[in-house]
Amino acid sequence: MLQVESRDGASHVALQGELTIYQAAELAERFLPLLRREEGLVIDLSDVSDMDSSCAQMLMLARRHCQARGHGCALVNHSQPVIDVFETLGLVSWFGDPVVLPGESGPKNRPGMDAGMGGGA
């Protein structure tokens, strides 16, 4: 579900597999405590095979929480399923992280204004 590694003053979290309402409770249990570490967060989404609104909502919470405390919270390496969900929900612009779109369409969104990562604790 997730792997955490702490380096460069930020928690690097790799989310994995299906992240839907069925995993939401467990994900919350393992993921939300990271928000209390008072350091920046880098969330790697490359291995997420499925995501629904409940887990997308959790990422929103993480972003808002970090921002309010002046830490960075960056989403990186969006997998295709994540991109699809973000596009459907209008989250690409909400997060504003750079999303690399596959194929010829090229990057659609400019790098976000506040997606800076690793803002020190």
Binding site: A24, S54, L91, W94
Partner: peptide, 15 residues
């Protein structure tokens, strides 16, 4: 998407 109702971490229920 609107996050106006998204509570703080303490009040947040993941489901």
């Amino acid at each position: 998407i609107l996050d106006d109702w998204l509570p703080d971490l303490a009040d947040y229920d993941p489901e």
